[in-house]
Design a binder for these strands. Structure first.
Lengths: 174, 174
DNA sequence: TGGTGGAAGTTGAGGATTCAAGTACACGAG
DNA sequence: CTCGTGTACTTGAATCCTCAACTTCCACCA
């Protein structure tokens, strides 16, 4: 892959503008690290707690919520996943007994996902192992400055993708 | 599910040792950013090029390799995925015509994954859009210092998980 | 009131991923 | 030469995720 030309195709903005060598090194390091880490955590939780990392994250969010319950849409947004994915996930977590659905009294379309007692207990049982894995893979290896820097960087990236990332680049709104 | 070695779960450390509030904020920012970014890139490539981000990454690695070919195991290691996953992936990419398999002459068990001409052309066609997406989501938002920092951090994390990550936390080696 | 557009959530089909097995070959020791 | 162990890769089933409908219900307004 070598190319410095300026192919048009107005669909894509401006000229190619490739990544520099240094940027490529950063990007590959990012891909490698995130791939390895997600895989590592998935395996750890699958083995110990019998569920993928995302599912575990859902339970944690429920545990932190008032009444240990959240509306489906809230939970989905909080976890940055689609409602569809959440729907499937909750169905599975319900079968495992860690989550229960409840109708929302004020909105008949609404559903609450509620963390069950078994779910909470399961979290208590496996949280230490998970925290250990995270610590070992990430925090134990970084200096305090790097940890701070990582937080800032990730916040910036997340915010850029988060809000109405659609609206931001819709021509007629500019 | 097998259960050997039910010793006092040597995997779990002594006392919990939770994340501090600040560490939790960093960790959540990381999860949010990586989830959103992966999703964003997957969608972009699925829409434009008809394949998930990982598959695209495989093609890029082949394009960068001498002869545009790599042994299956090499490719899998380079992309940080399992051989099984790669096997399925290459089967799919083969059906789409972007990749072709070739027997290895020196080792009859071996297979090469080879990027086809259509695969290369496809990359040329969609690379600008992909680079643009990456740039827009990441590099355009970070200062040069942050980019450098990100690279260092990700390299550290990747290296910690990469090598014989198993051996590193095997009790009898400590 | 009754109609309409949108919000909340679910569903099913098709892809993608994982895990455990399985096939085929390589290679060194006897 | 052949046995045993390990490597390279594939396969199938179960699970998970995405995408595009689809159902039900809310909110608003004329």
């Amino acid at each position: 892959m070598d190319r410095m030309n300026t192919a048009p195709t107005s669909a894509d903005p401006g000229e190619p503008h490739w990544l520099t060598d240094e940027e490529q090194r950063v990007w590959r390091a990012y891909i490698d690290a995130t791939t390895l880490l997600e895989d590592h955590l998935d395996r750890q939780l699958q083995r110990d707690a019998g569920m993928p990392h995302v599912y575990y994250g859902l339970l944690v969010k429920l545990a932190d919520a008032p009444e240990r319950r959240l509306r489906m849409t809230e939970l989905a947004m909080s976890a940055k996943i689609t409602r569809s994915r959440l729907s499937h996930a909750v169905a599975r977590l319900e079968k495992s007994g860690w989550v229960r659905r409840e109708d929302c009294p004020s909105d008949k379309r609404g559903q609450f996902a509620v963390l069950t007692d078994e779910g909470l207990e399961m979290l208590a049982r496996h949280a230490p192992g998970h925290v250990h894995a995270v610590r070992q893979a990430v925090f134990d290896r970084l200096t305090p400055e790097q940890q701070k820097s990582l937080g800032e960087i990730m916040r910036i990236v997340a915010e850029g993708l988060q809000p109405s990332e659609a609206g931001a680049d819709l021509p007629w709104l500019r």
